[in-house]
Design a protein around this nucleic acid. Structure first.
Lengths: 140, 140
DNA sequence: TTAGATGCAAAGTGTTTGCAGCCTG
DNA sequence: CAGGCTGCAAACACTTTGCATCTAA
């Protein structure tokens, strides 16, 4: 269950009603840190909750994102994917196997805060390339 | 005309046919470094070339991007925008006025090359916040 | 009991595709 | 003249919206 309990407390404190669907979406993300898309989440939850709808998934994700419990990534130019990791971190995307994984490099931290009078509230760094596994496969 | 001539040479060397539409898209980007979307480009070029089509704009942009003459950004989660600046740089997006401007911070350079056996070919860092101008306006 | 959440379907937006006709080399 | 680019429209994929029904407190 990881830090589900803490998360549930935080959401309750914000006055958010914890419906079965919202808990299911949050739990799925916490248990699957593979940066799933809306469709990944929908397909998986549909097995356990056959009547769940895509619109509900969208609405739960928006709510959890606005509550600061999850992050929305735009690493794919055509669809959103989500990350329950609240720590400051970045992402690597493998162009070959399309896996996304976390990058714990502190580098862009220095860009947070202020930059020439502009207030920086959030930094997303996306690294695109070929992961170690794929490089080994193709004998590079 | 800025560095149009150089760009045209490079494209010719690659054997790319320089049609009026391709040159118009490239020139528009070089003259308008405001990170326009496909629709921005389309609307503007339609004034000079009334029969130009969106499909052509998409095709020109894809070609120029693949030729390495322009960059495609995914700073907006719902639509692409483009940047003719070939230097390594990043982007700031103002949540209020929605302007995007270049950030010449060297920071993430250190992430290029290699990272734990993964080959990093491209790094895009997006800074989200409120620009100086908007902060002044609201008397912050 | 009732405000507000869900499920469904339709609409909306950005992008891609197929193909006839046109242009460039 | 021929390959391939353009313009048009239809198809697509993801997301948002409207609304009747249901549910949690």
């Amino acid at each position: 269950m990881k830090n589900m309990q803490e998360r549930i407390e935080r959401l309750k404190e914000k006055g958010i009603v914890l419906t079965i669907q919202r808990l299911a979406v949050l739990e799925f993300l916490v248990e699957n840190c593979t940066h799933p898309t809306v469709d990944d989440i929908y397909k998986s939850l549909k097995e356990k909750y056959p009547t769940i709808s895509q619109a509900t998934i969208y609405s739960c994700l928006e709510l959890l994102r606005d509550a600061g419990e999850i992050q929305e990534l735009s690493i794919h130019r055509d669809k959103a994917c989500f990350d329950p990791n609240l720590r400051m971190h970045h992402h690597f995307f493998c162009k070959q196997c399309e896996k996304i994984f976390d990058v714990n490099i502190e580098c862009p931290v220095s860009m947070q805060g202020w930059f020439d009078g502009n207030k920086v509230e959030e930094v997303q760094a996306y690294l695109y390339g070929v992961c170690e596994e794929c490089r080994k496969k193709e004998g590079g």
